[in-house]
Design a protein around this nucleic acid. Sequence first.
DNA 1: TTTAACATACCGACCGGTCAGTATAGTACT
DNA 2: AGTACTATACTGACCGGTCGGTATGTTAAA
Lengths: 196, 196
Amino acid sequence: MGGFKASTGDKKRRIIIAAMRCFQRKGYVNTTVDDIASEYGRSKGSIYWHYPSKKAILIDLFSYWMDETFDGINAEIAPLESSRDKLIRMGEFFIESLIRDYELYSSMMVFWGTAFEDASMRRMVVDLYRRYDEVVTSLLVQGQADGEFSVPDIPAFSTMLIAMIEGLIVRQVMSRSLDLERIRREIPSLVKRFLP
Amino acid sequence: MGGFKASTGDKKRRIIIAAMRCFQRKGYVNTTVDDIASEYGRSKGSIYWHYPSKKAILIDLFSYWMDETFDGINAEIAPLESSRDKLIRMGEFFIESLIRDYELYSSMMVFWGTAFEDASMRRMVVDLYRRYDEVVTSLLVQGQADGEFSVPDIPAFSTMLIAMIEGLIVRQVMSRSLDLERIRREIPSLVKRFLP
DNA sequence: TTTAACATACCGACCGGTCAGTATAGTACT
DNA sequence: AGTACTATACTGACCGGTCGGTATGTTAAA
């Protein structure tokens, strides 16, 4: 991630940043559009000029994060050869992102909470899982085909790997007490146990 | 879990069940106290006779679930000898609970979302993590002492095991599309890879 | 280069609905 | 009569969204 573009004119992006900060501080429900406006440094009317609803802001934030995440992953793993290395790199990448962009992940949890109660947002989350699954599954298939490792049940293992990352994110956002550097260091040894 | 006690007089328990159903359907924020009352089959005034606030109901539901979960785990793993078997059983137990008490887990996610925005609830969640960590860590220490397996970094591995379960719960609650039976079947093979 | 016309961006008072929580009167069992 | 509980009606804070109006360009014909 490493910060949003801030070229002149992209007010929407500025609003998203403001919203992100607010959501991270107070959650979605407790954040008022006036809060976002004040963080944005403008008034509520201005927000509604750019966005049709509070929900639309959250959705936009989520889309942005999702796209950036996948771009990031692809860029990270593309130069690597081995599928196992790619999976290791993916794991490390997520932990590093979580360390660096804690605020963003934190406000993303807000999306999860809200998505739970909203069908259209939920669909976005499910789509996100599907995309992760595609990436991980194809790496497992590839690595197995190349004879790098052998996995008894690829879909199940893919699900569990993704679940682990997701669980780490959730926990860190809730507790803020994880030693993420230490966990990052253990990712290679973990994946090697996973995929011997 | 397998259903709440329903002895005469424990209206609070009935209210909790009603609330659970509502939260599961509509989430915490979108559930009104009138919704809970109507699911409970009584009026709002009645709810407020038993509980001082909507939040108190959620907290009570969470406490109940937490206690039941730990009782369940202890009962499951107590008769087992090997630490590895205990960890396998724990994993299976959670997946089985998730299959059986989906509604409950689903409404628990609501707690997560709300806890994110509320310091006192957040403390409860952090405490829950601490208790899981105690159980898993002590099993890892024990198994290592007994020469069953060897783990490079016990706290990190404990965290990751718990994260995996948590992640599975989150994902299932969101997507409802996981093949949990299949994942349950893979738990032993997964733990054996984890702890060779 | 003036000016009319339009576009973009923003302001903030206000409305209308929602809902947690309260007040109070009832009921029914002991 | 008292206690445990329930029903009804109400209050008031809160907040998403609206809207009339303003300010600051931008374009282009006169």
